[in-house]
């Protein structure tokens, strides 16, 4: 059976083969869902935003000319869809604009997360669920989706330097929390 490339599928959908879009959905649904779940911190919201993102991608696919990777173009839609949802829920200021130092939610929940985590790695993954939107997104894109900082900067519409700073700060925050809870023995 012939395996179609991403480019072939996009061209096919553009020619009017609507059902081929399901192949793109299968390619990206888990990746986009991971990002949305950590941005919106809610399974239901993430599911709805995922549907909206794919719908927007379908409607605007004709404007995708292939100048950038499809993944970058699509993640940008996903990221903006999530931000719009956060803004409409009047949570944007709290979640997106806050810096790590101002993110009291994380520090308030930290003890609870620590007590519920069996080891350093579990603790780390649980903390990521509570990170501010932009910090969570940069880690997901960099580590799970293997995106370069350049691509991340395009998705998040920030400069390359800012994307790098954001990645460093996010890692430093996780590092400091690990040290705070004396997980040193597990780090050797």
């Amino acid at each position: 059976m012939k395996k179609y490339s991403e480019k072939d599928i996009i061209e096919s959908v553009k020619r009017g083969n609507q059902s081929d879009f399901s192949l793109l959905i299968d390619m990206y649904k888990h990746k986009a869902f991971s990002m949305l779940k950590r941005m919106l911190k809610n399974q239901m919201d993430a599911e709805e935003a995922l549907q909206d993102s794919f719908l927007k991608a379908y409607e605007n696919l004709s404007s995708f000319r292939g100048d950038s990777k499809f993944s970058t173009w699509f993640y940008r839609i996903v990221y903006n869809t999530a931000l719009t949802r956060l803004a409409s829920a009047k949570r944007k200021v709290e979640k997106e604009m806050s810096s790590i130092d101002e993110h009291y939610d994380l520090y308030e929940n930290d003890d609870k997360i620590y007590s519920e985590s069996k080891d350093a790695k579990t603790y780390l993954f649980n903390v990521i669920e509570e990170l501010p939107v932009r910090n969570a997104v940069v880690l997901i894109l960099f580590y799970i989706d293997d995106m370069s900082l350049n691509e991340i900067s395009q998705v998040m519409d920030v400069s390359l330097v800012n994307a790098k700073v954001l990645l460093h700060r996010s890692r430093n925050l996780l590092r400091d929390l690990l040290l705070k809870h004396n997980y040193q023995e597990e780090m050797i």
């Binding site: 959905i25 869902f33 599911e47 995922l50 790695k121 590092r175 040193q184």
Partner: peptide
């Protein structure tokens, strides 16, 4: 540095969350 290295290596083992099975059908 050890803690940072641990963060980096742990994050590299992170996996995607699974989107619900019905999602593709709903979108289509």
């Amino acid at each position: 540095l050890k803690a940072l290295r641990f963060v980096d290596s742990s994050l590299r083992t992170m996996e995607h969350d699974k989107a619900p099975d019905h999602i593709a059908g709903s979108i289509m």
